[in-house]
Every structure is written in C-alpha cells, then in structure tokens.
Amino acid sequence: MSVDNWIQIAGMIVTGLFSFLVWQATIKSNKLSKENFEFVKEIRKIEKDIHNERELRFRRTYCHWTDKRINAMLLALVYQLGDRSEKEELIKEIPREVGLSKETMAKYFTIHEQVTIQQIYEAYNDFLKKHWLMDEINFYDAGVGDYKEAAEYLYELVAELKSTLKFSLYENAPMEELMGDVEWRP
C-alpha cells in the first residue's frame, strides 16, 4: 500500500468520525429543541392562566361595582316610600349611570347583563325626570307628583331586573365570591 492509500483511509476514518460526532450533536440538539418547545408551551399556558385570572379579577370588580350602585339605588327608593328627611339627599347621591365605558361593559359583561343594567338605569332616570329633576342638573326640594307610588313601582322593577343579574363568572358564582380584593381599573 502506498502513502496515498493510507491518506485516503485516514481521510475516510476522520470523515466517518466527524459524521458520527455531527450525528450525535444533531440528536442532542433535537432533544433540546423538543424540551425547549415544551418549556415555551408551558410558559405560554402559565401566562394565559395569569391573564385569565387577571381578567376574572377585573370582572369581579366591575360586577361588585355595579351591584353596589344598584343596591344604593334600591335603598334610595325604599327611603322614598317613607317620610324620612334623608330621602332627598339619598336620591341626589345616586349616580344616574353605571359609570363604566361601553368598551368595559362589552368586555366584562354578557349581553343580557348589559341590557338589564341599561334598563335599570333608564327606568331610574325616567323616575328622576318625572319626580325629582327640574332640569338635567337641579333637583326639586321634594318629590313631585305621585313619586311615592312611582318609587314603589320602580323599586319592584329594579329588584326584579336585579334578580336576573346573576353576575356569573364561571357557571353561577354568587356575589359573595365576587367581593375579593381587586384593584380598580377605569
């Protein structure tokens, strides 16, 4: 055998050795890629869960916010039925709208909830216009007309509409579950 043959044999052995090493590196690289893919998938799942929990907390806040405002409205209407002097002040303090943007309402409330909340506030504003408001801003000193009868009817209507608002989060969560510690987001 000549030197050229030995050089060819050595070249083939070195090429085979490097091919084997590249093949082993490719196998390890594929294994690491699969593990990395699974890791990224798990991270995305955790991020999605965190986002969903955050959105659920905002929904809880807005449901609780709306429920408190409707309850204050009902309390003011109950005071309208009696002869207590606080009724004038209470009726003035009740907000005339839900206080949330249309985008927030659309994002965090179902269509049924949005419609019901809107109906409650429309009925309340009609009551105010007929029995308490001189114009858009100024109130009468006392209710005008048959405001007690109208307040009683409105109370029953709002209470009935509110009872249809279950404010479900997942399935039918009661309001007690909605009252967690959450931050306000306008």
Rank of each mutant, 00 (worst) to 15 (best):
E55G: 04
L21I: 08
L32F: 03
R69W: 08
D141S: 01
W23D: 00
A72F: 12
E152F: 05
E88T: 15
E122C: 06
I46L: 13
D67R: 11
K41D: 08
S168P: 13
M73L: 15
P186C: 01
L56D: 11
Y153F: 14
P95W: 03
V182K: 00
F39K: 15
I50T: 08
A151K: 04
S168G: 15
Y121E: 05
E177A: 08
R44K: 12
I137Q: 07
G11M: 13
F58T: 09
R69N: 13
M1E: 14
T61H: 07
F167E: 01
E171F: 03
K130R: 08
V3R: 12
E160D: 09
N138V: 04
T116F: 05
E171W: 01
M12W: 12
I137N: 07
F37K: 15
A150F: 01
Y155M: 10
I70P: 14
A151C: 05
K166P: 00
K107R: 14
V98Y: 05
E156V: 15
K87M: 11
E136D: 14
I91C: 00
W184P: 04
D126T: 07
I94V: 15
I27L: 15
L157H: 06
K92L: 10
E42A: 15
A10I: 15
A151H: 00
L161V: 05
W65F: 15
A159Y: 13
L32M: 12
V14Y: 14
E86R: 09
E176Q: 02
D141G: 00
K166W: 01
A25N: 13
E88N: 12
Y108E: 00
L77Y: 02
H112G: 04
Q80H: 08
E177W: 06
N36M: 07
F39D: 10
E93A: 08
Q80E: 09
I7N: 10
W65H: 10
T26F: 14
M134H: 03
E152M: 07
L133Q: 06
I117S: 10
G145W: 00
T66W: 10
A10F: 14
Y124R: 11
I111Q: 09
I117T: 10
K162H: 14
G143Y: 03
S101P: 03
R60P: 04
F20I: 01
I9F: 10
Y62P: 07
N138T: 06
N172Y: 01
T66D: 12
F18M: 10
Q24P: 06
L81D: 08
Y124G: 11
K166R: 03
L161C: 10
K41P: 02
G82Q: 12
M105H: 04
L75N: 11
L32P: 06
A72Y: 12
A173C: 10
E38D: 12
T110G: 08
R59Y: 09
Q24D: 11
M179R: 05
